[in-house]
Design a protein around this nucleic acid. Structure first.
Lengths: 225, 225
DNA sequence: GTTTTTATGATTGTATACAATTATACATTA
DNA sequence: TAATGTATAATTGTATACAATCATAAAAAC
């Protein structure tokens, strides 16, 4: 049953992957706006590569939900509206709740130690007000949990959801007073995990994401006015 | 904000798509076994097309989770073990439960009528013992619900999950006495949806999928012995 | 003046050629 | 013999050329 295991693909950068990331950045930074068409020939000359890796990159972008491909017509950049965003967070509540539940059941002592270190770092950088680090560690905390829950299907599902909200995460934690609260919540979740208490871990995680959702929606509404 | 809407891509069959389906079938039918490598040149000569559409098809297969691509090395067919299968069904319980909840809230009268017709057909073909039709309608019932819940993120998530278990669905409903029970459950879910009763619809859907899961695991264990 | 047709250009889809990488078998050395 | 290096073959990655499809605008028909 060796063939069933995942091989840890160590990201040996291919051109397609580089192009994928470059186009993704352009979209995330607003250089390319929702509604615009991605034209393979333009992108390829712009990036100095042939059309083939661009094509593959566009296919990867479709997979992340950033783009929709219409056969024989091309790829158009998709936006997401408020309803979509709310739905994504509601789904995340359920799925990440489940992830915490399973992590609480399945985590090893070594993994608990590792997660503890992340929390310590988070508290450190929050005191220092280093937004850059805070955002990165926030992502890392969530990613570690769904690594430790040790379920390929769940990881797959969650990674899709996280891709969808990549555009918004940067504003979610930054700027407001949410960072302090978020970390206090992380600490609580961590303790439930460390005690192998699935019910509490799940409940706290759901609340945590519900709070993040409210905060994000609030910020977005403010930005619009 | 026109650009945000999905264009109903009416499947204008491209070669890549045809090739995708052919390879998918080969894997689903066991012609290509988990652990085997997909070799582009072989497949292209075997199917009488060039390597380009084969490459694109393999990328699509990776997206459905049937295959894993290791850069510079190729694509290997993935299997899923019992734990994966259980996890998928647990996730499905949550997600389809949510789909039913939202469908109950958002469904139109016209959609209720349509869904009712599917149920009627299901009952008809179950009396006739037409396994072919039963399986198809079972899929259709679930797909209609997450079409009617009208949430793109949820649809995306669920369609991934359904792809993952495509290999198993054919044996799930067939052969056993499960079909009768399944349809009775569908009927109950339908009534909750028609009454716009989210709580009941969600609860019944979760139970329904839990039952399907037990049934599937039982069948698989029997087949192994 | 409006609609339909037709021609042209732009863009995507597919095939093929070549480059880069990886796997395999054999030889070499300790 | 085991380990390491090297040559060759197999395979994937990328570039380019051509075919098919679609979008646009001018011309023709009404």
């Amino acid at each position: 049953m060796d063939s069933f295991k995942h091989i840890n693909s160590d990201n040996p950068n291919s051109l397609s992957l580089r192009v994928f990331k470059e186009i993704e950045d352009m979209i995330l930074n607003g250089e390319i706006q929702p509604g615009e068409n991605l034209i393979e020939s333009k992108l390829s000359s712009q990036l100095g590569v042939s059309r083939t890796p661009v094509r593959e990159a566009v296919r990867m972008l479709e997979r992340t939900g950033l783009v929709q491909i219409v056969p024989n017509k091309g790829a158009v950049v998709l936006g997401i509206d408020d309803q979509d965003l709310e739905d994504i967070y509601t789904i995340r509540m359920l799925i990440e709740g489940l992830a915490s539940r399973w992590a609480a059941e399945r985590m090893t002592e070594e993994q608990i130690r590792e997660l503890g270190e992340i929390i310590d770092l988070q508290e450190f950088y929050t005191m220092k007000n280093s937004t850059e680090h805070i955002n990165h560690l926030d992502s890392q905390f969530h990613e570690k949990i769904f690594e430790y829950c040790n379920s390929r299907p769940l990881q797959h599902t969650l990674s899709d959801l996280h891709h969808m909200i990549k555009r918004y995460r940067k504003i979610s934690v930054g700027s407001t007073g949410r960072a302090d609260k978020a970390i206090a919540e992380h600490r609580q979740i961590f303790e439930a995990l460390a005690e192998h208490n699935p019910d509490t871990a799940e409940k706290l995680t759901i609340e945590h994401i519900a709070n993040a959702k409210e905060n994000l929606l609030k910020i977005i509404r403010e930005k619009r006015n």
